[in-house]
Computed example of a mutant assay.
Amino acid sequence: MAMMTVIPPAGEGWFKSSFSDGGNGCVEVRFEEGLAFVRNTRDRGSAMVTFNRAEWEAFLLGAWNGEFVMPG
């Protein structure tokens, strides 16, 4: 299977959580072509993590269920 990288246009369609502190201490997400792109707000030009729909939905369900609480 061939891998395909889709790079969304910079600055268009990114969403940051309403729970963000208003600074750059958060991540942003953008949805395009059935994929969720996630990037660090402190370094928007660096690499992004890409998830397909099933992966994204599994992550959201895990977060909602409290499975990703940071220790300590």
Rank of each mutant, 00 (worst) to 15 (best):
A2R: 06
G13N: 03
E67P: 08
R42T: 14
A2I: 07
A58L: 10
M70I: 06
A63P: 02
N52C: 08
R44S: 07
A47V: 13
A47E: 14
V6A: 04
W14D: 00
L35V: 08
W56H: 04
G23P: 12
G45V: 03
L35C: 05
P9T: 11
P71W: 03
F15A: 04
F68I: 13
F59A: 08
F68S: 14
D21W: 10
D43C: 06
M48K: 12
M70Q: 14
R39E: 00
M3F: 04
E57Q: 09
R30W: 01
G13S: 05
E28Q: 09
E67R: 10
K16Y: 03
F31Y: 08
E57N: 10
R44L: 12
F68Y: 15
G34F: 12
G34H: 08
M48E: 04
D43E: 12
E57C: 04
W56P: 03
A2F: 01
G13H: 01
G13A: 00
T41S: 14
V38E: 02
R30D: 01
R53K: 13
T41G: 05
G23C: 03
A58P: 01
R44Y: 04
G62P: 04
E57T: 14
L61F: 00
R42H: 09
V49C: 06
L60D: 06
S20V: 03
L60I: 12
W56T: 07
F37E: 00
E32M: 14
N40K: 06
K16Q: 13
N52I: 09
A2D: 07
M1H: 07
G13E: 00
S20M: 09
N52F: 04
M48G: 00
M3P: 01
P71T: 07
F68H: 15
P8H: 10
A2N: 08
P9A: 15
E67I: 01
W64I: 14
D43Y: 03
G66F: 01
G23T: 06
G72D: 13
G34P: 05
N40H: 13
G66Q: 05
K16N: 02
G11S: 07
F51I: 04
S18A: 14
V69T: 14
E57R: 06
F15V: 09
N65S: 15
G11L: 09
S18F: 11
T50D: 04
V6C: 04
V27H: 00
F15E: 10
A36G: 01
L35S: 01
T5Q: 13
N65F: 00
A54G: 13
G66S: 15
N24Q: 11
G45D: 10
R53L: 10
M48C: 08
V69C: 03
G34A: 04
E67Y: 00
E12Q: 12
G22N: 12
L35W: 11
T5P: 00
N40D: 15
N52M: 01
G34N: 09
V27N: 00
